[in-house]
């Protein structure tokens, strides 16, 4: 019983020693001169930093480094950077340097090396990029570390130039925009002008009658009055045919009508004018 207890204690001690952790994790901004940020220890319980880091036009490089003891050397050390909820993540490899008992790992996150797709979606959806650290050894799944110590917000001035790859799917709808119908004047204005013209016509007839130039002396009193009447009626008839043409009769019907009216009216009209005497 006691042996079992001792063995249990030893086992838990050993397994705790097997738990991977990184020490002295910190972020440095070599190019932009900003102060570095210390994160400290990274293990399975690491929580996220309060404020996200920012990539903007002035930030050059972000260096993320930490150290791991040589005896705990993990076989898989990687930094996942991306949007895990979208399943869009890129794996970054560290630069490894050995300093005796400690192994230093450094990840360089640079705006130019981060894939444009990540920057584009982070900017478009206004989500920060999640950085997750993987420290893993085989056959050690309980003690491997997958932690997200910090997030990076993308805050660039201009939109990221990224052309989304073509995918099959519904495309945006297009409805044709028609040329606008030509605008017409208001009906009241047109009516006003029609009344103006009607008044002018009325005024014309009045002017004719009041000018003193009208006398009906030339109306022939003999048989020629019939010719006169026919002459007037034929020109009224022609105007009627023309107005009927305007209203929609086909041109061929109109031409036939003109022909039928023209034969008698030309003959009788010339007869009328010839017999009109010298008074014209």
């Amino acid at each position: 019983m006691r042996l079992a207890g001792v063995l249990f204690a030893v086992c838990t001690l050993v397994s705790n020693c097997l738990a991977l952790q990184a020490r002295d994790a910190h972020l440095a901004f070599p190019n932009s001169g900003k102060r570095g940020i210390m994160i400290g220890k990274i293990d399975s319980n690491t929580q996220e930093m309060q404020k996200p880091l920012v990539i903007d036009n002035s930030t050059g490089e972000i260096d993320f480094s930490f150290a791991i003891e040589a005896r705990d050397r993990p076989s898989q050390v990687a930094l996942l950077l991306g949007l895990p909820e979208r399943d869009l993540e890129v794996v970054m490899e560290p630069k490894v340097t050995e300093h005796g008992e400690l192994i230093m790992y450094k990840f360089k996150i640079d705006q130019s090396t981060v894939p444009k797709a990540l920057l584009y979606f982070a900017q478009a959806e206004e989500q920060p990029l999640t950085a997750s650290v993987i420290l893993a050894k085989p056959e050690n799944h309980k003690n491997n570390v997958l932690a997200s110590p910090f997030k990076i917000r993308v805050d660039l001035d201009e939109a990221v130039e990224y052309r989304r790859p073509a995918r099959y799917g519904a495309k945006p709808e297009i409805i044709h925009e028609f040329n606008p119908e030509p605008k017409t004047a208001p009906w009241k204005l047109v009516q006003f002008f029609i009344i103006l013209i009607a008044l002018a016509t009325f005024g014309l007839v009045i002017a004719w009658m009041s000018s003193g130039a009208l006398n009906f002396n030339s109306v022939p009193t003999n048989f020629n009055v019939v010719y006169l009447l026919f002459f007037i009626l034929s020109i009224i008839g022609f105007e009627y045919i023309f107005v009927r043409y305007y209203a929609g009769t086909s041109i061929f019907d109109t031409l036939f009508a003109v022909l039928y009216l023209a034969i008698p009216s030309l003959w009788l009209g010339t007869k009328f004018l010839r017999n009109f005497g010298e008074t014209i």
Partner: peptide, 19 residues
């Protein structure tokens, strides 16, 4: 006389064109 008729008609035509 008829010249008066013609002249008044011409003035009317000018008025209509102007309108």
């Amino acid at each position: 006389n008829r010249l008066k008729l013609i002249d008044i008609f011409c003035v009317f035509l000018v008025v209509v064109a102007f309108v």
